[in-house]
Amino acid sequence: MHILFDLDGTLTDSRPGIINSIRHSLAENQLTVPEADALLWCIGPPILESFRKLVGPDQPHLFDPTVTKYRERYSETGIFENEVYPEIVDTLAELRQLGHTLHVATSKAEIYAKRIITHFELDRFFTSVNGSELDGTRADKAELIAHILLQQGISPAEAVMIGDREHDMIGATKNNLPAIGALWGYGTGKELMESGATLCARVPHLLPEMISSLE
């Protein structure tokens, strides 16, 4: 089976780097800086989508500057304010031993995703690491999953998506893939089930058994 993993909130807890970089960007552009907990909704969706909401329609001239400031800090510092979730390494190893092929499917810019996967030595588990372009191309999860299926020659019948937010579940459903919600991430069980999750896993070590039940 081909298993597509989201990155932020699924493989790694990326909250500090993303939130710190967003708050830095807003401050640098003299915009209101929300408390960290008020920005948790930004973890998961494409970052360009988040900044469109943060900047708002009344100040479109600040969109590009805020994205630039975010990427300046994130690419140097924020990218490493991040850690692999407990049980992930052992779970990935078990899935590989069971004969599954693993792929990363993230709305994050691919250039950053590859650096993160390599930095945490997770690249040994993954056949491909897939993300968006900096201009937002393939940031939509449905578009990204379709791209991966095409590029890797994967049939939807032999794949499953694992992620922690509604975008992952919706993207999988649009491509006729089953999806497993990662409850250790940033989405709620209600969000995941209402957006199309086939199953939800409370912790990573439950994934091998759940995936077997889908085969």
Score class of each variant (00 low, 15 high):
104 V>W: 00
106 T>H: 11
106 T>M: 14
106 T>Y: 09
108 K>Y: 05
108 K>Q: 10
108 K>A: 14
108 K>W: 03
109 A>D: 05
110 E>F: 04
112 Y>D: 05
112 Y>C: 10
114 K>E: 14
116 I>R: 01
117 I>C: 10
118 T>L: 12
118 T>K: 08
119 H>L: 11
119 H>P: 01
120 F>T: 13
120 F>C: 13
121 E>P: 00
122 L>H: 04
123 D>W: 05
123 D>K: 12
123 D>F: 04
128 S>M: 15
128 S>P: 01
131 G>E: 11
131 G>C: 13
132 S>T: 07
133 E>D: 10
134 L>I: 14
135 D>C: 09
135 D>I: 14
138 R>N: 07
138 R>S: 09
140 D>I: 09
140 D>M: 12
141 K>E: 14
143 E>D: 13
143 E>T: 13
144 L>R: 06
144 L>P: 05
146 A>I: 00
148 I>E: 09
148 I>L: 08
148 I>C: 15
148 I>G: 01
149 L>A: 05
149 L>V: 08
150 L>K: 04
151 Q>S: 11
153 G>H: 01
155 S>K: 02
157 A>G: 04
158 E>A: 13
159 A>N: 00
159 A>R: 01
164 D>E: 13
166 E>S: 05
166 E>M: 09
166 E>A: 14
167 H>S: 13
169 M>E: 12
169 M>S: 06
172 A>M: 15
173 T>S: 13
174 K>F: 05
174 K>E: 11
174 K>M: 15
175 N>C: 13
176 N>D: 06
178 P>T: 13
179 A>F: 00
179 A>C: 08
179 A>E: 00
179 A>N: 03
180 I>W: 01
181 G>P: 08
182 A>L: 15
183 L>Q: 14
187 G>N: 07
189 G>A: 08
190 K>L: 12
